Amino acid sequence: MKNVYLRSMLAAACAATLAACGGSGGNMFLSGSVVGLAKTGLILQNGGEDLPVAAGAGSFVFVNLIKSDDRYDIKIKQQPKGATCTINNGSGKANSLSVSSTVVSCVTDTYALGGSITGLSAGGLTLINGASGSISPLQGATSFTFPAVADGSTYNISVSSNPAGLTCRFQGSISPDGHDIVGTMGSGPVNSLALACARN
């Protein structure tokens, strides 16, 4: 009777340990790498298991273990806010080794950033926005646009060169000469900036 009791206790302990590892009866990990995840909110899914992935993560591992011949199908249940992720090598059939070949690649969403221009009666204007590069609106232009600015990034547009005989200033600039405008890119296009040019 004592041996039966001990065997029952051992079985219960083993079952509890298995449940802590995911309860699937497997002995292999289902994992992969993550590239370019700068935003929060990503949730991966395999079968009935959801796995949140933190911003900045370089890898992921599902809690539930898998066993040989198990089929897996990793999907994106929820995209991160302000980014788009895709999965490569996300489905297949496990063999005798842990699965680690899945790659989740994420790209932060970008939007157009710009606004209006008044008084641009001469050529030579150049605007610059850090890593987004520079643009040179032509004489007579009434608007400007930086085509791809990352969601949530800080922008700092400045007048790199004024047109001949003109001085251009941003409305709402906090700099003494009005030559730059600073802000944070939202989750959508911005076209509300205003640049006014006047004769010297």
Rank of each mutant, 00 (worst) to 15 (best):
G26Y: 00
G119S: 00
C168A: 10
D69Q: 14
C197W: 01
F29H: 05
Y111F: 04
I128N: 14
E49C: 07
A112N: 03
S134R: 07
G188E: 00
R71L: 08
D109T: 06
I76Q: 15
G32I: 06
S187Q: 13
C168P: 04
V182I: 13
I181W: 14
G92R: 14
P176A: 12
C106N: 00
D70M: 14
V63D: 02
G82Q: 14
S134E: 04
V149G: 09
M9V: 05
P163H: 15
K67S: 14
S59G: 04
G119I: 00
A19Y: 08
G58S: 05
V159K: 11
D151Y: 13
G26P: 03
S100F: 13
A150H: 09
N3K: 10
G47M: 08
L113V: 05
V159F: 05
I87M: 15
R199F: 00
Q139K: 14
S153D: 02
I181R: 15
A38T: 07
L51H: 02
D109I: 07
P176T: 13
N129K: 05
A148R: 09
G172Y: 12
V182R: 14
F29D: 04
L138E: 12
L97D: 11
S143F: 15
I117W: 03
G140N: 09
V61E: 08
T84Y: 15
A196K: 02
S175G: 12
N95V: 14
A55M: 04
I128E: 10
N200D: 02
L10N: 07
I43P: 09
S91D: 12
G124V: 01
P80L: 11
S96C: 09
N191I: 06
R7F: 00
G32P: 05
N89A: 14
G140T: 15
T102V: 04
P80H: 13
F60H: 06
T167G: 09
C168Q: 04
F146G: 05
V61Q: 03
